[in-house]
C-alpha cells in the first residue's frame, strides 16, 4: 500500500503545525517520522490514520484521496491499515479478548467463530498475553497494553501499520522482538509509518525519514 501526504497544512488553535508538508511511502517500505517533543509527531500520526482531517492537503492511499472514498472502500481502508496508539487505545470496559474480537466482528462478520478465536489465541500467545485474555485491560501493564494494541492492529493482517511512539512502553527484550517482527512485516510488503525518535527504530527500519521541526515542518528524504 502506497501512502502519500500531499501539501498537508494544519493549525491547532491558530498555531501552524504543518505548512505544505509532503511525504510518501511505498509498499514494503518504512517512513519514520521524528522530531522534538511537541513538534507534531502525534498530530502527523492522527492525520496519517485519518483520525484528524488536515485543514488542507490530501492523504492519498494507492493514489486515491481518503477523503473521497465511498463507504465500502473506506471500510476496506480501515481494515487494511492497522493503527497502534502510544497509550494502546484498548477499550477499558472490555476484556482483552473482547478488545481483540471487536475489529474481527466489525470487518469479518462472516468469519467462523472458531477461526476468530484461533486468530486471537495465536496472536495472544505470540505476545505472551494468553493468560490475560479473559481479564479487563486495566490489568495489563503499559508494556503489555502496547503489545496488545499491536496485536489488535495485526489481527486483520493489515497492508500498512501506523504506530505512534513504537517501543516507548515496551521493555528491551520485547523491543528486540517487535523490531524483528516489523522487519519481517516490511519484507512481506507491509507499509510502515512509525512516529519515533528512537535510534534503533530509525537505524533498523527507516527507508524514508521525515524530520519535523518545531513551528514549521519540512521533510527530508
Amino acid at each position: 500500500m502506497q501512502i502519500e501526504f500531499k501539501n498537508i497544512s494544519h493549525s491547532v488553535k491558530n498555531k501552524t503545525i504543518f505548512n505544505d508538508l509532503n511525504a510518501r511511502v511505498s509498499s514494503g517500505r518504512c517512513l519514520v517520522v521524528s522530531g522534538r517533543s511537541g513538534c507534531g509527531k502525534t498530530l502527523f500520526f492522527s492525520i496519517a490514520s485519518d483520525i484528524i482531517r488536515p485543514d488542507s492537503g490530501q492523504v492519498l492511499v494507492d493514489g486515491r484521496d481518503v477523503n473521497t472514498l465511498n463507504a465500502k472502500d473506506y471500510s476496506d481502508f480501515r481494515r487494511d491499515v492497522g493503527v497502534v496508539f502510544q497509550l494502546s487505545g484498548l477499550i477499558s470496559n472490555l476484556t482483552l479478548e473482547e478488545n481483540l474480537m471487536l475489529p474481527l466482528n466489525r470487518h469479518y462478520k462472516e468469519l467462523d467463530k472458531s477461526e476468530k478465536y484461533h486468530r486471537i489465541n495465536t496472536l495472544a500467545e505470540e505476545f505472551a498475553l494468553q493468560h490475560y485474555l479473559p481479564q479487563r485491560t486495566e490489568m495489563l501493564s503499559s508494556g503489555q497494553a502496547s503489545l496488545a494494541g499491536l496485536a489488535r492492529a495485526l489481527l486483520l493482517k493489515p497492508r500498512a501499520v501506523i504506530w505512534d511512539a513504537p517501543m516507548a512502553e515496551i521493555d528491551e527484550q520485547w523491543g528486540e522482538y517487535v523490531l524483528k517482527l516489523l522487519v519481517q512485516l516490511k519484507a512481506q510488503g507491509t507499509t510502515l509509518i512509525l512516529c519515533s525518535n528512537r535510534k534503533e527504530v530509525i537505524e533498523t527500519l527507516a527507508d524514508e525519514q521525515l524530520e519535523l521541526n518545531e513551528l514549521f515542518c519540512f521533510s527530508e528524504f
Binding site: 490514520s49 471500510s75 487505545g89 475489529p103 466489525r106
Partner: peptide, 20 residues
C-alpha cells in the same frame, strides 16, 4: 463520564481507527 474518559484515553480514536 465513561464517554468523556474514553475520549481522553484515546479509546474513541482507536474505535475510529478500527472502522468502528
Amino acid at each position: 463520564t465513561e464517554l468523556g474518559n474514553m475520549v481522553v484515553s484515546k479509546e474513541i480514536d482507536a474505535l475510529i481507527a478500527m472502522g468502528v
